[in-house]
Write a protein that binds this DNA or RNA. Sequence first.
DNA 1: CAAATCGTTCATCCTCGACTGAACTACCCG
DNA 2: CGGGTAGTTCAGTCGAGGATGAACGATTTG
Lengths: 229, 229
Amino acid sequence: MTSDPDIASVGSLLGDGARAQMLLALLGGDALSAGRLAEIGGVSPSGATAHIRRLRDGGLVTCERSGRRLLVRLANDETAAALEALARIAPRPPVRTLRQSAADDALRRARTCYDHLAGELGVAVTDALVERKLLRAGDGAFDVPAAGVSWFGQLGVDVEQVRERRRAFARECVDWTERRPHLAGALGAGLADAFVARRFVERLPGGRALAVTSAGRRWLRRELALDLA
Amino acid sequence: MTSDPDIASVGSLLGDGARAQMLLALLGGDALSAGRLAEIGGVSPSGATAHIRRLRDGGLVTCERSGRRLLVRLANDETAAALEALARIAPRPPVRTLRQSAADDALRRARTCYDHLAGELGVAVTDALVERKLLRAGDGAFDVPAAGVSWFGQLGVDVEQVRERRRAFARECVDWTERRPHLAGALGAGLADAFVARRFVERLPGGRALAVTSAGRRWLRRELALDLA
DNA sequence: CAAATCGTTCATCCTCGACTGAACTACCCG
DNA sequence: CGGGTAGTTCAGTCGAGGATGAACGATTTG
C-alpha cells in the first residue's frame, strides 16, 4: 500500500549475534579492524569479512583502508541512536558473575556512545550545562548561548568551528541506561575529545566503559558542581 | 565480557518481513486482530499465530482476548520509539507509482505514531505549543505550565488526570520523517484522542495516515496560528 | 443445535544464510 | 626479495526458522 521503510533489512542485520556484538563494540566510538571484529563476534576471519560487507552494504558502518588493515566504524550517530533505542527494549540477560556486575556498573556510570559521553556522566554533564545556561535544550537539539561558547572555548572546543561541520551540530541522544537525553552530535564529540585530551576520563580496557580520573573528578566539582558517586 | 543487552534477539524479530510489516501497521496505534495481521504480513493464519507468539514472547506486543478474537497492540511507546529510530536508518524503497507517492505524502503530513500525532502535523503542533509556552521542552520530556493546563483542559484533556497514569507523562518522540521531536507519552495520546473526538483529524483508509479536516484546519489556524499547506 | 468464524496445533517441507577451511592477494618489514 | 600478517574469495556443509495445509478447539450467530 504505502512504501514503508524497509525495517526488515536493517533488522536482519542486527538479528545475527555476531553482527550485533560487533555493532555494540563499535558503539564505543573508535574504528576497529576486521580482525578485532572477528574476535569480538567470535567468528573466523572469512566470516568477519562477510559480516562487515553486509553491514557496509546496509549503510550501518563505513570502511576505510589503512595499509593492509580494514578499519570499520559506525556510519553516523543516527545509527548509534537506533542501536541505543533497540538496546532500551532488548531483554537484559541475567548478570551472572561479580566481575560482570562490576563491568556493568562501570558501563552504567560512564561510557562512550559512538563518539560522545553517555551513561550517568554524560547525562549529568548535560544536565549541569543546561542548568547553568551554558547549553539551551529544546526541540531535540541544543543551542549554545554566548556564555556557553566561551565555556566550551575555555575547555578547548571551538564552538564556531564545530558548527561549520557538515554533521548535526548538537543533537540529543537518549541514553540507554539512564533513559534521559545527553549531548550528542558534533559538539558532543568535541566535548568527549576534550575530556579525553585533558585526561578527565580514560578508557577502561576492553570496552566502551570510561573511568573518571581524579583530575576529572576535581574539575567537574569545581566547574559544574558535580559530585560523582 | 560485559553483559550487553541482547540486541540480536530483538533484531531477529524485526528481521522478518512479515513481522516488520505487522509492527509498522501496529505503529498506527490501535489493536489489530490476528487475522488482519496475517493479511498485512502476507502469511497464512497459522503463520500469523507463530509470528504473534514470537513478538509477544519478545515483549514487543501485548495480546488481549476479545471473544474469539485476538487483539494485538504495540507493547509500549519505547517500542514505538525504537521502531521509528530503526525506520530512520532503514533504506527507503524507491517510490514506484503515483498512488504510492500520494500515500507517502499523506503519511508524511500527518499520521499516528503508536497513540499520538506524528508527521508534519505532530511536529508543528508541538512546536506551536512550545512557542506559546503552553508546553515547556527540555530534557527529553515536556512539562505543562499553568497556562498549558487550562489550554489542554479547554480541549477536553484533563492534564492532572493524565499525569496520574502509570505510563510516561509527556515524553519526546523523534519523528521518523521530520527527524524532530513531537509530543508523545500519555499527554500525547490524550491530545491525539481529543483531535479525533473533535473530528479535527480523521483516519485515512488502510493505514496510519491522517487527514486534517477543514474544521481541524480552522481550529489550528485560530488556536495556534498554524497554516497547514 | 448447526453453521460459520477465528484462532491454534502439528507435521512436514524447504530455503536462506551463517560457518569453516583452504587457497589466494595485498601489504608491511626486515 | 622473502616471510609474515591482514584480509578476501570460494566451495561446500549445515541448521534454524519460516511457510503451509489439515485437523482441532473455542466462540459467536442463525
